[in-house]
Amino acid sequence: MTATQKLPRRSRTKKTAEVDVTKITKLIRLLASDRDGEVLATVSALKRALAAVGKDLHDLANATETGFKPPAPPPHRQVTWGPPPPRPDNWQSMAWFAFHRRFDLCTEDRGFIEDCLLGTTFRETDDQVMTWHLERLRRIVAIIQAR
């Protein structure tokens, strides 16, 4: 005879069942009785009901404690509008970043950004983005980020 066969039938069942909330609630309400015997019987019944699902009074106290706490406020997420931070090796991301914040720029830089996005800046270099274009865009982005 193995060890599990010696245990009573109730103890051999796997404890994967969920807590019967209505039963626990009824038992807790019975604790308000003015009769001592009824309260003691209720405590025993409550312990048995919790033990049937692998819980004890400490688990019930923890559940009660978390239930009485006010819900935590949702984490504050800062909403950012606009394009993502620019990549210094991509002229389009820098141009769109600067265009979104174009009112922080002087008129000359604002015109340069608009011409970049329209493609008219690159006409004089056979539609090639030159290193001096990238340097100017990086300078403009640095001005915006410094503000």
Rank of each mutant, 00 (worst) to 15 (best):
residue 44 S to R: 06
residue 26 K to M: 09
residue 125 T to E: 04
residue 25 T to M: 08
residue 39 V to I: 15
residue 102 R to W: 03
residue 67 G to M: 12
residue 35 R to L: 09
residue 44 S to P: 00
residue 81 W to N: 06
residue 30 L to F: 07
residue 88 P to N: 13
residue 99 F to S: 15
residue 10 R to F: 10
residue 70 P to M: 03
residue 55 K to A: 14
residue 49 A to L: 01
residue 27 L to C: 02
residue 89 D to F: 02
residue 87 R to H: 14
residue 32 A to M: 05
residue 80 T to G: 03
residue 67 G to A: 14
residue 117 L to W: 01
residue 90 N to W: 06
residue 96 W to V: 04
residue 128 Q to H: 09
residue 130 M to C: 02
residue 28 I to D: 05
residue 14 K to D: 15
residue 114 E to D: 03
residue 87 R to K: 12
residue 138 R to A: 12
residue 58 H to L: 11
residue 110 R to A: 15
residue 84 P to M: 06
residue 108 E to K: 14
residue 24 I to S: 07
residue 100 H to R: 04
residue 111 G to F: 07
residue 25 T to R: 09
residue 52 A to P: 04
residue 130 M to K: 04
residue 83 P to M: 06
residue 103 F to V: 05
residue 66 T to A: 12
residue 10 R to H: 10
residue 37 G to M: 09
residue 93 S to H: 03
residue 141 V to P: 10
residue 13 T to Y: 05
residue 62 N to E: 11
residue 46 L to I: 02
residue 18 E to T: 15
residue 27 L to V: 01
residue 32 A to K: 10
residue 101 R to L: 07
residue 6 K to S: 11
residue 137 L to Y: 06
residue 115 D to P: 02
residue 91 W to N: 14
residue 74 P to L: 13
residue 90 N to C: 11
residue 124 E to P: 05
residue 123 R to Q: 05
residue 84 P to W: 03
residue 71 P to C: 05
residue 11 S to W: 07
residue 5 Q to L: 10
residue 101 R to F: 08
residue 71 P to K: 11
residue 27 L to S: 04
residue 117 L to I: 04
residue 117 L to R: 01
residue 79 V to T: 11
residue 50 L to S: 09
residue 130 M to P: 00
residue 17 A to R: 10
residue 7 L to T: 00
residue 14 K to P: 11
residue 115 D to C: 10
residue 6 K to T: 10
residue 107 T to M: 08
residue 100 H to W: 11
residue 58 H to P: 00
residue 111 G to L: 08
residue 126 D to N: 13
residue 57 L to S: 12
residue 2 T to Q: 10
residue 29 R to C: 07
residue 54 G to W: 00
residue 101 R to Y: 13
residue 62 N to T: 06
residue 133 H to A: 05
residue 56 D to Q: 04
residue 72 A to V: 15
residue 33 S to V: 00
residue 72 A to S: 11
residue 57 L to I: 14
residue 81 W to M: 13
residue 24 I to F: 08
residue 142 A to V: 00
residue 121 T to I: 01
residue 26 K to A: 15
residue 40 L to I: 14
residue 9 R to M: 09
residue 107 T to I: 09
residue 112 F to Q: 07
residue 59 D to P: 06
residue 60 L to V: 04
residue 142 A to I: 00
residue 123 R to M: 03
residue 56 D to K: 03
residue 88 P to V: 05
